[in-house]
Nucleic acid binder design. Sequence first.
RNA 1: GUGGGCGUAGCUCAGUCGGUAGAGCGCGGGAUUGUGAUUCCCGUGGUCGUGGGUUCGAUCCCCAUCGUCCACCCCA
Length: 430
Amino acid sequence: MKAVYKHPRGMPDILPGDIGQWHAIEAAVRSTMHSYGYEEMRTPLLEKTALFERGIGEATDIVEREMYSFLDRKGESLTLRPENTASCVRAGVEGGLLQPGSVHRIWYQGPMFRYERPQLGRQRQFHQTGAEVYGVSGPVIEAELILMTAELWRRIGVCGVVSLEVNSLGTGADRAAYREMLIDYFQASADQLDEDSQRRLGKNPLRILDTKNPDMQELVENAPKLIDHLSNESAEHFAHVQELLALNDVQARVNPRLVRGLDYYSHTVFEWTTDRLGSQSAICGGGRYDAMLADFGAKATPGVGWAMGMERIVALVAVISEGDVAATPARGPDAFVISTLKDDTGFPIRITETLRRACPQLKVVQNTGTANLSNQLKRAGKLGARCAILLGEAEKASQSVTIKPLTGKNDPFTVPVAQAGQALSSILGS
RNA sequence: GUGGGCGUAGCUCAGUCGGUAGAGCGCGGGAUUGUGAUUCCCGUGGUCGUGGGUUCGAUCCCCAUCGUCCACCCCA
């Protein structure tokens, strides 16, 4: 079989055999969001390009080289969303949610798009799940958001292989003062900066600290740290967050070099990482971004949030469970209808449909082959069916069905069609 | 965006020192003209990712392209 068409690069299909993993993780996400009182929000996949340029920051890699932007039929520049925070803020403002004093806990889930070289855990169309809180300043809500990610890892079953790093970026004023300090420091050693860093020096010197260039490690290591130059209020704020995490048994390592890629953060930022996924180690990250709300028209409303990469979580679960998950088959049919009537297709489908209507909670599947009874039963067994419904000349003549339980050693029995649904329910239990 | 590996049946892979290909599993049918998870038999399967080039001849060599993986980079 040759495929006439292939998927675009970095945009793989999720086939039925893999969807169970996603459903399991999505179920954990939903239950966690419910526990914490967050409500789902959905925004369009396309936004006006300016929304992301402004919201994410012009000097970021995402905006500079990773966005899928195009002109629509009226010549307006639209972009496939590379992340969802800017859209959520836009929707919150536009939808009138972000009134001063009101509080909203929001979560989202869906595909995002970035033009990158694909790798394990890094696709061009990928899926993020995230949570955002609007209308709450202060450290408690930051702690809540971090604590819910920790709880999510517990529910997904990956808490043993992830670790948390936190940092504080302070206030805009803190950063402005620090930024000057940093520019002075790096300019004094400008000859040691690589090309990327020289470019960032003018636009966004904080991101130089995030470099992984080994030649610059010493320079970066000795740079002044923002966390040592926070205002007293910011330092207290950050200390409080750390206390609240410790109070709830969540270990966090302070990483003064954690800056995060998006420009709008302030105060607490955090990142969950794992060492089990090769070079894509970040599985979740977030922080406070009051400044973006102000930019978007909600001056009096603060905002905090995080996002996690679903593909990375799926990959992480697969890596740590090795063969376990593969050995867990998808749940088979509750009832598998097989027929030895070679020239009557009407009776079997009518019985199947009757059972579905009588037992809407059960999965009732009609066999599609023409094999002999023995092989049809083998197929039922392979599918993991809980019982088989046998139809043949005798059943057709007496308008009855034979039910054969496949899980135990129960003998098959025959009941009239009218009682088949009830009989099925009672032997399968609940 | 940079560098490198890979692409043979639905899946995992073998193979051809250049003469158009195999295995296991899977899938379909049967052994058993009405009772499964074991076994046996038969069958289905691939213009060897795609397009060019070299050659009498290419799945194999070369180039391009698409997809994929790894590192860098970046982030979720």
